[in-house]
Amino acid sequence: MAIWNLGSINADMVYAVPHLPGPGETLAASKLEQFLGGKGANMSVAAARAGSHVCHIGAVGPEGRWAVERLTEYGVDTRHISEAEVPTGHAIIAVDAGGENQIVLFPGANHSIGADQLGQALSSAQAGDLLVMQNETNAQVEAAKMGRDLGLKVCYAAAPFEAEAVQAVLPHLDFLILNEVEAEQLQQASGLSPDQLPVPQVIVTLGSRGARYFDTASGETQEFPAFKVEAVDTTGAGDTFTGYVLAGIDRGMPIAQAISQAIRAAAIMVTRHGTADVIPDLKDVQDARF
């Protein structure tokens, strides 16, 4: 099996600040680092490091070849990443001393993915493969419909959250992952709680409290507690969780085992500064002692 990821690719500019800036406030950063990022790239790297074959569908600008090379180095299949005329997406990320972050995102080439590119990529997919999307690219609805028609397991990570974007793909989904705030916002927009959504499997991440899993067909709900660690940077933790969950499913794990492993990976991730470049590999996760 394989994971197909219609996903963003960004240059993440991470600034260490004493606290997150308020309106009109100017802060001096004590440190600047650049990482490979984007929710899509993060998920691809996480799933690849968790042992899956991951095919990334995306786009970079003329100056973004370094990002494609980095993804390749991390074990991601990059044959379906195109080069656009617009700049590569990038994010400006402020991280405070407690590890909380604030992000400004420029989509760039992530919104230039064509239907031909998408169709050509997914023509190589096989029934039973996984397709994952996030809300940082264009063509999400088209991909979801195409994935459903091809017999793929269609998954959506509902961030950056827009209720309209989630509702547009809901009819085609098999799996939905969103955080607690996003779940509340979706319920306000749709009138449906997570266990009532027309999606067979739903995970709501709860930050430092872990995650909650809903099997909407059976009505089963499971709680998964988080591990207590000292967080230094929460950037990319949710993406790491998602990549590891999908890799677990792809590799045939029971859902409870996949979620538990993903929580371990996310716990390691928040103890590291950075995004895709510092996502833990499977050995890190298996060897971790909490």
Rank of each mutant, 00 (worst) to 15 (best):
P107N: 07
V86F: 01
T72F: 09
A97S: 13
G99E: 03
N101H: 06
Q102H: 10
I113W: 01
E85I: 13
A67I: 05
T72L: 12
A115L: 15
G108R: 01
G99S: 02
E85A: 14
A84M: 06
D96V: 07
V86N: 00
I113T: 01
P107K: 10
G108T: 06
E69L: 09
T88K: 02
A91S: 15
A109F: 04
S112D: 11
A84G: 06
A115R: 15
A84S: 15
I103C: 10
Q102V: 08
A97T: 12
A84F: 03
H111I: 11
T78Q: 03
L105R: 00
R79L: 09
H111R: 13
D96F: 07
W66C: 06
V76Q: 04
I92Q: 13
A84L: 03
N101T: 08
G99L: 08
D96W: 08
S82D: 12
L105S: 03
T88L: 03
A91Q: 06
T88E: 03
V95M: 05
G98R: 13
I113N: 00
H80S: 14
E69A: 12
E85F: 10
A84Y: 01
H80F: 14
G98T: 11
E69M: 09
V104W: 09
A67C: 14
D77G: 02
A84C: 10
E85K: 12
A67T: 07
E73N: 13
V86D: 04
G98D: 13
E100S: 10
V104E: 07
A67F: 07
Q102G: 11
A97N: 10
I103V: 12
E69Q: 15
A97C: 08
V95Y: 02
E83S: 10
N101M: 08
D96E: 09
D77I: 02
D77P: 06
A97K: 15
A91W: 00
V95F: 05
I92L: 15
G114P: 00
E100N: 14
Y74M: 15
S82G: 12
T88G: 05
D77F: 01
Y74G: 02
L71N: 04
D96L: 08
H80N: 10
F106T: 11
